[in-house]
Design a binder for these strands. Structure first.
Length: 180
DNA sequence: TAGGCCATCTGGTCCT
DNA sequence: AGGACCAGATGGCCTA
Protein backbone atom coordinates (compact mmCIF):
# COMPACT_ATOMS: atom_id res chain seq x y z
CA UNK A 1 0.00 0.00 0.00
CA UNK A 2 1.41 3.30 -1.04
CA UNK A 3 1.32 6.61 0.73
CA UNK A 4 -1.07 8.25 -1.58
CA UNK A 5 -3.89 8.97 0.78
CA UNK A 6 -2.82 12.48 1.54
CA UNK A 7 -2.46 13.31 -2.07
CA UNK A 8 -5.84 11.90 -2.72
CA UNK A 9 -7.30 14.56 -0.55
CA UNK A 10 -5.90 17.13 -2.89
CA UNK A 11 -7.11 15.37 -5.91
CA UNK A 12 -10.56 16.28 -7.00
CA UNK A 13 -13.07 13.57 -6.60
CA UNK A 14 -15.29 12.85 -9.49
CA UNK A 15 -18.09 14.27 -7.42
CA UNK A 16 -16.26 17.55 -7.35
CA UNK A 17 -15.59 17.23 -11.00
CA UNK A 18 -19.21 16.61 -11.65
CA UNK A 19 -20.14 19.56 -9.53
CA UNK A 20 -17.89 21.70 -11.62
CA UNK A 21 -19.46 20.24 -14.64
CA UNK A 22 -22.82 21.02 -13.21
CA UNK A 23 -22.03 24.64 -12.90
CA UNK A 24 -22.07 24.69 -16.59
CA UNK A 25 -25.20 22.66 -16.76
CA UNK A 26 -27.39 23.77 -13.91
CA UNK A 27 -27.22 24.83 -10.28
CA UNK A 28 -26.29 21.92 -8.06
CA UNK A 29 -29.02 20.54 -5.92
CA UNK A 30 -27.49 19.88 -2.56
CA UNK A 31 -30.04 17.51 -1.13
CA UNK A 32 -27.27 15.88 0.83
CA UNK A 33 -23.55 15.83 1.09
CA UNK A 34 -21.84 14.44 -1.94
CA UNK A 35 -25.02 14.55 -3.84
CA UNK A 36 -24.88 15.90 -7.29
CA UNK A 37 -27.63 15.92 -9.77
CA UNK A 38 -25.65 14.97 -12.76
CA UNK A 39 -28.30 13.58 -14.97
CA UNK A 40 -25.95 14.38 -17.71
CA UNK A 41 -24.66 10.99 -18.59
CA UNK A 42 -21.91 11.17 -16.08
CA UNK A 43 -20.61 14.58 -16.87
CA UNK A 44 -16.87 14.84 -17.00
CA UNK A 45 -16.17 11.27 -16.07
CA UNK A 46 -18.05 9.90 -18.98
CA UNK A 47 -17.00 12.60 -21.31
CA UNK A 48 -14.20 10.64 -22.83
CA UNK A 49 -16.32 7.67 -23.69
CA UNK A 50 -18.86 9.96 -25.15
CA UNK A 51 -16.41 11.97 -27.10
CA UNK A 52 -14.04 9.40 -28.38
CA UNK A 53 -14.19 6.31 -26.25
CA UNK A 54 -17.11 4.71 -27.97
CA UNK A 55 -14.96 2.82 -30.35
CA UNK A 56 -13.46 0.79 -27.55
CA UNK A 57 -16.33 0.90 -25.12
CA UNK A 58 -18.99 0.03 -27.58
CA UNK A 59 -17.18 -3.11 -28.49
CA UNK A 60 -17.95 -4.54 -25.12
CA UNK A 61 -20.83 -2.45 -23.95
CA UNK A 62 -24.11 -2.00 -25.61
CA UNK A 63 -25.03 1.32 -26.97
CA UNK A 64 -27.73 2.95 -24.95
CA UNK A 65 -29.64 5.07 -27.35
CA UNK A 66 -32.41 5.40 -24.84
CA UNK A 67 -30.18 7.34 -22.51
CA UNK A 68 -28.96 9.61 -25.18
CA UNK A 69 -32.49 10.11 -26.21
CA UNK A 70 -33.43 11.07 -22.70
CA UNK A 71 -34.56 7.84 -21.08
CA UNK A 72 -35.87 9.36 -17.90
CA UNK A 73 -36.15 6.10 -16.03
CA UNK A 74 -32.58 5.18 -16.75
CA UNK A 75 -31.36 8.57 -15.66
CA UNK A 76 -33.42 8.41 -12.49
CA UNK A 77 -32.02 5.01 -11.84
CA UNK A 78 -28.51 6.34 -12.28
CA UNK A 79 -29.25 9.09 -9.84
CA UNK A 80 -30.57 6.66 -7.26
CA UNK A 81 -27.54 4.50 -7.68
CA UNK A 82 -25.33 7.51 -7.18
CA UNK A 83 -27.19 8.42 -4.01
CA UNK A 84 -26.88 4.87 -2.82
CA UNK A 85 -23.15 4.90 -3.38
CA UNK A 86 -22.87 8.22 -1.61
CA UNK A 87 -24.64 6.74 1.38
CA UNK A 88 -22.28 3.82 1.26
CA UNK A 89 -19.34 6.18 1.21
CA UNK A 90 -20.76 8.13 4.11
CA UNK A 91 -20.96 4.89 6.02
CA UNK A 92 -17.36 4.18 5.14
CA UNK A 93 -16.40 7.60 6.40
CA UNK A 94 -18.25 7.02 9.65
CA UNK A 95 -16.44 3.75 10.01
CA UNK A 96 -13.10 5.42 9.39
CA UNK A 97 -13.86 7.90 12.13
CA UNK A 98 -14.77 5.12 14.48
CA UNK A 99 -11.36 3.56 14.07
CA UNK A 100 -8.65 5.24 16.13
CA UNK A 101 -6.28 5.29 13.21
CA UNK A 102 -8.32 7.68 11.14
CA UNK A 103 -7.38 10.64 13.17
CA UNK A 104 -4.06 10.71 11.38
CA UNK A 105 -3.30 12.44 8.14
CA UNK A 106 -4.10 9.58 5.82
CA UNK A 107 -7.47 8.53 4.56
CA UNK A 108 -7.93 4.82 4.70
CA UNK A 109 -8.97 3.11 1.54
CA UNK A 110 -12.15 1.10 1.65
CA UNK A 111 -10.42 -2.20 1.87
CA UNK A 112 -8.12 -0.88 4.56
CA UNK A 113 -11.09 0.45 6.47
CA UNK A 114 -12.92 -2.84 6.40
CA UNK A 115 -9.87 -4.86 7.29
CA UNK A 116 -8.90 -2.57 10.10
CA UNK A 117 -12.42 -2.37 11.46
CA UNK A 118 -12.72 -6.11 11.42
CA UNK A 119 -9.58 -6.57 13.43
CA UNK A 120 -10.41 -3.66 15.68
CA UNK A 121 -13.73 -5.20 16.61
CA UNK A 122 -12.13 -8.52 17.24
CA UNK A 123 -9.41 -7.09 19.40
CA UNK A 124 -11.92 -5.12 21.43
CA UNK A 125 -13.99 -8.24 21.81
CA UNK A 126 -10.96 -10.11 23.01
CA UNK A 127 -10.21 -7.40 25.52
CA UNK A 128 -13.74 -7.36 26.83
CA UNK A 129 -13.82 -11.08 27.16
CA UNK A 130 -10.51 -10.98 28.89
CA UNK A 131 -11.72 -8.40 31.36
CA UNK A 132 -14.93 -10.18 32.11
CA UNK A 133 -13.10 -13.51 32.12
CA UNK A 134 -16.30 -15.40 32.22
CA UNK A 135 -17.67 -13.61 35.26
CA UNK A 136 -20.95 -12.73 33.71
CA UNK A 137 -24.00 -12.59 35.90
CA UNK A 138 -26.06 -15.67 36.06
CA UNK A 139 -28.62 -15.93 33.35
CA UNK A 140 -31.79 -14.32 34.52
CA UNK A 141 -34.49 -14.11 31.99
CA UNK A 142 -34.18 -14.08 28.27
CA UNK A 143 -31.94 -11.06 27.98
CA UNK A 144 -29.29 -12.40 30.28
CA UNK A 145 -29.52 -15.69 28.57
CA UNK A 146 -28.83 -14.07 25.27
CA UNK A 147 -25.91 -12.21 26.73
CA UNK A 148 -24.51 -15.43 27.98
CA UNK A 149 -24.95 -17.06 24.63
CA UNK A 150 -23.26 -14.14 22.98
CA UNK A 151 -20.42 -14.41 25.37
CA UNK A 152 -20.01 -18.09 24.67
CA UNK A 153 -20.21 -17.47 20.98
CA UNK A 154 -17.46 -14.90 21.00
CA UNK A 155 -15.35 -16.89 23.33
CA UNK A 156 -15.58 -19.90 21.10
CA UNK A 157 -14.88 -17.81 18.05
CA UNK A 158 -11.81 -16.29 19.58
CA UNK A 159 -10.54 -19.66 20.67
CA UNK A 160 -10.83 -20.89 17.15
CA UNK A 161 -8.97 -17.95 15.77
CA UNK A 162 -5.34 -17.03 16.01
CA UNK A 163 -3.95 -15.43 19.10
CA UNK A 164 -2.55 -11.96 19.06
CA UNK A 165 -5.51 -10.25 17.52
CA UNK A 166 -4.70 -7.03 19.27
CA UNK A 167 -1.10 -7.10 18.22
CA UNK A 168 -2.22 -7.79 14.69
CA UNK A 169 -4.41 -4.76 14.80
CA UNK A 170 -1.67 -2.59 16.21
CA UNK A 171 0.70 -3.86 13.57
CA UNK A 172 -1.79 -2.99 10.90
CA UNK A 173 -2.24 0.49 12.23
CA UNK A 174 1.47 0.91 12.27
CA UNK A 175 1.88 -0.28 8.71
CA UNK A 176 -0.92 1.97 7.51
CA UNK A 177 0.67 4.89 9.26
CA UNK A 178 3.95 4.09 7.63
CA UNK A 179 2.12 4.08 4.35
CA UNK A 180 3.46 0.70 3.44
C1' DT B 1 3.82 3.89 -17.84
C1' DA B 2 1.77 0.50 -14.70
C1' DG B 3 -0.89 -0.28 -10.92
C1' DG B 4 -4.07 1.12 -7.24
C1' DC B 5 -8.16 3.36 -5.94
C1' DC B 6 -12.24 5.39 -6.96
C1' DA B 7 -16.82 7.27 -9.13
C1' DT B 8 -20.07 6.41 -12.36
C1' DC B 9 -22.95 3.97 -15.64
C1' DT B 10 -25.40 0.00 -16.75
C1' DG B 11 -28.21 -4.30 -16.97
C1' DG B 12 -29.61 -8.13 -14.35
C1' DT B 13 -31.74 -9.87 -10.29
C1' DC B 14 -34.06 -9.66 -5.97
C1' DC B 15 -37.38 -7.64 -2.97
C1' DT B 16 -41.51 -5.10 -1.50
C1' DA C 1 -44.13 -2.30 -11.30
C1' DG C 2 -40.58 0.06 -9.36
C1' DG C 3 -36.82 0.56 -6.21
C1' DA C 4 -32.70 -1.57 -4.02
C1' DC C 5 -28.82 -4.15 -4.59
C1' DC C 6 -25.07 -6.11 -7.10
C1' DA C 7 -21.26 -6.87 -10.22
C1' DG C 8 -18.87 -5.75 -14.49
C1' DA C 9 -17.00 -2.24 -17.39
C1' DT C 10 -14.89 2.07 -18.08
C1' DG C 11 -12.05 5.91 -17.43
C1' DG C 12 -9.92 9.65 -14.39
C1' DC C 13 -6.45 10.76 -10.98
C1' DC C 14 -2.43 9.82 -8.45
C1' DT C 15 2.07 7.71 -7.06
C1' DA C 16 6.19 5.06 -7.77
Amino acid sequence: MKSKRKAKRNRKTSVENDQEFQLEMEPASSDHEGSEKSLNLGGKRRKKSIDNGMASSANRRKQYPGVKGGNVRRLESNERERQRMHKLNNAFQALREAIPHVKTEKTLSKIETLTLANNYIKSLTAIILGMSSGCLPQAEGEESSNTSKLFQHYQQQLEEEDDGRLSNYLTQIHSFREGS
